[in-house]
Amino acid sequence: PYIYTDVLDFKNLQELVVNHRIDWIVHFSALLSAVGEQNVPLAIRVNIEGLHNVMELAKQYHLRIFVPSTIGAFGPESPLELTPDVCIQRPKTIYGVSKVHAELLGEVG
């Protein structure tokens, strides 16, 4: 089973976690580059604030979360061949920046 919800509505997310005894969240919520570059403030809210909401729920309720990254996290300076796991990431879109943000938060959180 799965549930679609507004990732910006923390209280609703919290109710869903509690009422459905959720222990895993698969977090795909994001505005991709084409839309995000047209409305950067909204992309920041959805892509970054939404991630923070999910991570806060995970912390409070001991949830496991899956937040996929993307090739969008790389930029023109990233090596195109034999790309190492750790390399320069300087994306040129808010979507890419938000994915790098998510990756780095995942390393510390």
Rank of each mutant, 00 (worst) to 15 (best):
P1H: 15
Y2A: 13
Y2T: 14
Y2C: 09
I3E: 13
T5S: 09
D6V: 11
V7G: 06
V7C: 09
V7K: 00
D9C: 08
D9H: 12
L13G: 01
Q14N: 10
Q14V: 02
Q14W: 01
Q14I: 00
Q14H: 09
V17T: 10
H20C: 15
H20E: 10
R21L: 07
I22M: 08
I22F: 05
I22N: 02
D23Y: 14
V26Y: 11
H27D: 11
F28K: 00
F28L: 07
S29P: 14
A30V: 03
L31Q: 09
L31I: 06
L31R: 03
L32T: 08
L32M: 11
S33M: 13
A34Y: 05
V35R: 14
V35T: 11
G36K: 04
G36V: 01
G36N: 04
E37R: 08
N39M: 08
V40T: 07
P41M: 02
P41V: 00
L42R: 03
L42Y: 04
A43D: 00
A43L: 03
A43P: 04
I44A: 15
R45Q: 08
R45N: 15
R45L: 15
V46Y: 01
V46L: 03
L51S: 04
L51G: 03
L51A: 07
L51N: 01
H52M: 11
H52W: 07
H52V: 07
H52I: 08
N53F: 07
V54I: 14
V54E: 05
M55A: 07
E56W: 03
L57M: 14
L57R: 03
L57A: 05
A58L: 02
K59L: 07
K59E: 03
Q60K: 14
Q60C: 05
Q60R: 13
Y61S: 05
Y61G: 04
H62I: 00
L63D: 09
L63N: 09
R64H: 15
V67R: 11
P68A: 02
P68T: 01
P68M: 01
P68W: 01
T70Q: 02
I71M: 15
I71Y: 12
G72P: 02
F74C: 10
G75R: 09
G75K: 09
G75L: 07
G75T: 00
P76G: 06
S78Q: 02
P79V: 05
P79Y: 03
L80D: 14
L80M: 09
L80W: 13
L80F: 10
E81F: 15
L82F: 14
L82V: 03
T83P: 15
T83S: 11
P84F: 14
V86Q: 12
V86S: 08
I88G: 04
Q89F: 15
K92I: 10
T93K: 07
I94V: 10
I94N: 04
Y95R: 01
V97F: 01
V97A: 15
S98Y: 00
K99H: 06
K99Y: 05
V100N: 00
V100H: 00
V100P: 08
H101R: 03
A102D: 03
A102W: 02
A102M: 00
L104Q: 14
L105W: 06
G106W: 15
E107W: 13
E107C: 11
E107F: 12
G109T: 13
G109P: 05
G109H: 12
G109R: 06
